[in-house]
Write a protein that binds this DNA or RNA. Structure first.
Lengths: 143, 143
DNA sequence: GACACCCGTAACTGCTATTGTTACAATAAG
DNA sequence: CTTATTGTAACAATAGCAGTTACGGGTGTC
């Protein structure tokens, strides 16, 4: 795996978990299924749990399960849960250079915030359930 | 500077160059102004030049100037010029694990492509000129 | 109680992307 | 010829991230 794999892994896992909402799935199973490591899975899913999208249970026959139906989990929920920030740089904002630069800096970051907001709005329009349904609705998507 | 600074630097520079469209600006000036390095500037602006957004001249009294008006340069132009890909991972796509995983992988990446497309569409609606005007239109943006 | 199972986390490694920096050839103006 | 400036290559330093090992803390089964 490479870049942006957290979001990819999260979506992948959520979609897959919807196939079997009864049994809790272990991080080992999920990792095996997604071609990664159990710890990586726990790291990512832990954020989803903090955001209330998943539930986890420790101990024997523990594991992960959905906290609510996939049609009530939007991509924006996942995005927010992961704390990603695609367009706007996270942190910094140097306060040096000339005043023109500072003013521009403010304007540029404001624009980036706006763009990010639009992105989230777009993400909120797609649910995990939509991902599962996408092939059913459009069997041959490519060309 | 830290992450995603290329887009930030590009927008910053383009906006700033619009204030003085007559004189060519050197990468040293731009770098000084933006708080970075001339080579970094040339790397980023070079991509904008390849995309036809900027013109550069070598030699004495050379430098950089806008190839067209800022109101005809959209953020999508810049984004495309930089070859960035915020949501969709660039490259890879492992072909292992189970078939369910593969199918999901396809669906997830299709969704990400759609999201990216929406993002670009949104970016195409804002021009560099809009950035400059943003403070004039909304003097006190925050609170 | 002993044991097996599973999450939660810390710590460390290795890889990759990115920025910063130096150096130098190529080009253009005076 | 000298000076200014881009275009690149090469390299170092840094940061983020996936992968891995290790272990503590719960929780069910026997």
């Amino acid at each position: 795996m490479k870049r942006n794999s957290r979001l990819s892994l999260a979506l992948h896992t959520l979609s897959h978990m919807a196939f079997d909402t009864e049994d809790a799935q272990t991080s080992a199973d999920i990792a095996d299924h997604a071609g990664t490591n159990p710890v990586v899975v726990r790291r990512v899913l832990g954020k989803l749990r903090s955001a209330g999208l998943l539930l986890s249970e420790r101990g024997h026959s523990g594991g992960w399960r959905l906290a609510r139906e996939t049609k009530h989990i939007t991509l924006a929920d996942v995005y927010d849960a992961l704390g990603e920030s695609f367009v706007a740089p996270r942190g910094q904002t140097d306060a040096r250079t000339c005043s023109v630069a500072q003013s521009l800096e403010v304007q540029v970051s404001q624009i980036m915030k706006d763009i990010e907001e639009s992105l989230v709005e777009r993400l909120s329009r797609t649910t995990i359930a939509d991902i599962q349904n996408s092939t059913k609705r459009e069997p041959s998507h490519a060309h």
